[in-house]
């Protein structure tokens, strides 16, 4: 498998009045061809900022302060805004959380799709662009697309709008689609439809997907690999089955235990990770998860652990993962 995207030691900080917020702090990962990589974590963990950083679409006071983003081996960090513009929506595109707000209310759907095609194919004829737009809308399951091109976003339901957004994201057959909580704002019944649609289309077109979500259940179904983020850092990454059935980091373990299960005993209360994620403004030294960790030791509050390989493609950032794996009881002491 070849990696189409390699993120190396990415640091995106926000320079606010109250201090520096390290939203993404030393994050590294790869995305392989035709794979779906899930990035999971609580809101505020830096998942979305990671997504936006890949496209270098960070607005002030945010700034990418360090790191490399190799796309097909080519570093995006030194690229100019104009060079980035040619990549955005063309080679790498993105789907946002809320379909209600990601479409411009005063332009027709047709305009917004055609624009996405046109900016990257300036020599394409109007008829060709139109044809491609109709095909796209059809492929995302919008009935009678010819007519609907003339409609405005408010004439579509939420689910339909997200389909339009997906159509726009796939308009130029990108190599990579970053989907930032693509179904969070949708009804549960529609969530599955949209997710399946994304999965099918990416397979057909050979695109890779970075699926950003707080929902462990969603990534478990969709992703080939899962990366877990906490307080701006990546804490564990590995193949989906490994992460689900053999999680190493105490935070991952907590996330998995908190997935509601339909089968099994229902009288048991759903697991909750105690405490809340600390503010990224005043991060304590050491492991950011330590205050909430059931297996915390002295060193956790002093030093940040490094990634350690724990299996095939499976890495974890924890001092005590062995103790957790050997005997969970030993943590209690």
């Amino acid at each position: 498998m070849t990696a189409i995207l390699e993120v190396k030691n990415l640091k995106t900080y926000f320079f606010t009045k109250k201090g520096i917020v390290k939203a993404v702090d030393d994050v590294s990962f790869e995305v392989y061809e035709k794979e779906i990589l899930g990035i999971v974590g609580e809101s505020g963990a830096g998942k979305s900022i990671t997504g936006f950083s890949i496209l270098k679409a960070i607005d002030p006071p945010g700034k990418i302060v360090d790191g490399h983003i190799y796309f097909h081996g080519d570093d995006l960090i030194p690229k100019s805004e104009e060079e980035m513009r040619k990549i955005r929506g063309n080679k790498i595109s993105m789907v946002f959380q809320d379909p209600l707000t990601s479409l411009n209310p005063v332009f027709t759907i047709g305009y917004q799709i055609e624009e996405a095609i046109k900016v990257h194919n300036p020599h394409m004829s109007r008829d060709e662009i139109r044809e491609r737009s109709i095909k796209l809308l059809k492929s995302v399951g919008i009935p009678s697309p010819e007519k609907r091109l003339k409609d405005y976003p408010h004439q579509f339901s939420g689910g339909m709008r997200q389909r339009v957004v997906i159509a726009i994201a796939l308009a130029n057959n990108p190599d990579l689609v970053i989907a930032d909580e693509p179904t969070t704002a949708l009804d549960v019944t529609i969530q599955a439809q949209v997710l399946n649609l994304m999965k099918r289309l990416s397979q057909e077109k050979g695109s890779s997907i970075i699926l950003i979500t707080h929902d462990m259940g969603v990534v478990a179904q969709m992703a080939d690999r899962i990366a877990v983020m906490y307080a701006g850092k990546m804490v564990e990454i590995g193949p989906t089955e490994e992460i689900i059935f053999n999680p190493k980091h105490p935070y991952t373990i907590g996330l998995i235990r908190s997935i509601p299960k339909l089968s099994g005993r229902t009288d048991k209360r759903l697991y909750q990770i105690p405490g809340i994620m600390p503010s990224l403004l005043n991060l304590p030294p050491g492991c950011a998860f330590a205050p909430r960790c059931f297996c915390k030791t002295d060193i956790c509050e002093k030093e940040m652990p490094e990634f350690e390989k724990v299996g095939e493609n499976h890495y974890v950032r924890c001092f005590n993962f062995r103790r957790i794996a050997d005997d969970r009881q030993s943590c209690k002491s």
Binding site: E81, S93, F96, S102, N104, E115, A116
Partner: peptide, 26 residues
């Protein structure tokens, strides 16, 4: 600050066009 402006940027629309077409019409 709206999402649709950020979405337009991520589509690869130039800053000029975002300001003078997408934002201005609103």
């Amino acid at each position: 600050l709206q999402d649709y402006i950020k979405f337009a940027k991520i589509k690869g629309v130039s800053k000029k066009k975002i300001i003078f077409v997408h934002a201005l019409k609103n």
